[in-house]
Structures are given as structure tokens and as C-alpha cells.
Amino acid sequence: MSTTTTQSVAATAQAPARRRTKARIHPFLFVLPSVVMLVLLLVLPIGQAFIDSLRVDGSWSFDNYVRAIRRDHLARIAIKHTFIFAAVSVAGQYLIGFAVALLLNERLPARGLIRVLFIVPWMFPAVVPGIVWRWMFDGLYGVINEVLYRIGYYAETDPPIAWLGQTSTALPATIVANIWRGFPFIMVLLLAGLQAVNSELYEAAAVDGANVWRRFWDITLPAMLGISYVALLLAWIGSFMNFAIVQVMTAGGPANSSEVFATLIYKNAFLYADANYAATLGIILLALLMIPGALYVRSTLNKGHA
């Protein structure tokens, strides 16, 4: 009898302890699959790439990094183009995305359908807009030259403009395609932000006699700062690592005038069989992307704590 009582008391005392242990373990179990996947698909490949980047002719060295930073003229060209590509793309995507979001926030007929249509460019894999815009910009058969000719921009006897065949226009042409593809993403984010703004603020401002511009400047813009910050960071990351549009439209040409970092990595890895150097360039790209990445994570965590 006494044994039974002792056992039951012990069991009663162990139950909360087991529950506490379970409570401590369960959260880790829930995130374990994600952690395993991250390690397998992200941490290990990046670690391998970093190790590869330090291999030069069978020995360990930072020479690949020295080569990328000091000796490879193409790497310097590509990084400059990448910053231009990302900066202009993000600016264009943001301005157009914001304008369209404001438009679609108004009471328009068939507003739902119009919203869906505006998202279409973003729904395609990047290769598709690349192909579409490549043909639109084509010097011989492109619709853009045809339109310019029809509106009288150039005469019948003038040679057509080789948009993708000139060093001055190849990179801008790829930026146009990237803006077209990327603005719907920003539009969707900003539209969600606009819909979260309390309508009573606008009504109160209207009663106080504020015009459209004042309402935009004093209510809309401040309310959109947080979401704009996130949208700009994500757009920057997407544009900075863009590969498909540039590769499909120009492959970095002519004369390296549209070479970006991602196309240079591809060439080293797959055309020159220089995997270690490609890994080095990949690590450099990763390091450059970690800055906006860290800012994005910080802003997300701040929201979580708020």
C-alpha cells in the first residue's frame, strides 16, 4: 500500500516536469524540418562555395578574391552595371508601382479585373519577359522600332535602331524589361498598405480643407513609409541578383555593356569551367546582398516585437 502511494506521489511530481520538458522540446521539433532544409539547401552549399572559393590550383589562398577585386576588369564592369541596373530598376519599379497602387485604390469599374491584369507581368518567370522584350527591342523585327517609325521618329531610309546592339542602349533596355516585370510586386505591397490606412483620417483632412496633394503628403506618404522600406529592400535584392532577363536579352553584350554580376558568375561557372572563381564571385555577391538582407530581417524583427 505504502509502495503504491509513494509511486503515485512520484508520478504526480514527474508529470509537470515531463510537461515542462515537452514544452521546451516541442518548439524545437516544430522548427526542426525547416532547420534541416535550410542547412541542406542553404548553409551547406554556401559553405561549400566558400571552401571552393579558397581553392587555387590545389592549394588554399585568397587569390581568387584578389583577382576579382584587383585584376578582373570584367568583375569591375559587372559590379558597376549591377548597381546601375538595381538602382534604376528599383526607382522605376517603385514610382510606377506606387502610381498604379494609388490608381487601383480608387473606386474604378472592374477594379478587381484591372488589379489582376496589372499583376500579370510578375506572374511570369523572368525568362518570359526577357524573351518578350528581346523581340520587342529587336533591331530588324521589333515592334518598338515599328512604332517609332510609324509616329515619324525616323524616316523610312534611316537604319532601324539596334536597341540591344548598341553599348549605349543595351543596359537601359534590360532595365526597362526589369521594371516592367518588377513593378507589380511593389504595387501589390503598396496597395495593401494603402488599404490599411484609416479612411477617417482622409475624411477629417477633407473637412479641414486639405486638398488631394496635402492629403497625399501628410497622410498617405507617412503611412506608407514602413511598407515602402520593405518593398524597396526586396526589390533591390531581386534586381541586384537578376540573371534571367539580362541573360536572355543580351547575355551581357554587346561588348560587355550590359554585363552584370550574375551573368559573369554564370559565364565563369558554365562557359569557362572555372567553378572556383565563380564560387568566389558568388560569395562576393552574397556579401553584397547581405546588407539589404540584414536590413530587411531587422525591419521584420522590429515589427514582430512591436
Binding site: 533591331g139 532601324p160 539596334a162 540591344l164 546592339g165 554587346p254
Partner: peptide, 8 residues
Amino acid sequence: VVPPNVVE
């Protein structure tokens, strides 16, 4: 005598 977009 070659297409103007020859580098394409």
C-alpha cells in the same frame, strides 16, 4: 551591307 543590329 549588313543588318544594323549585327551584334544581336
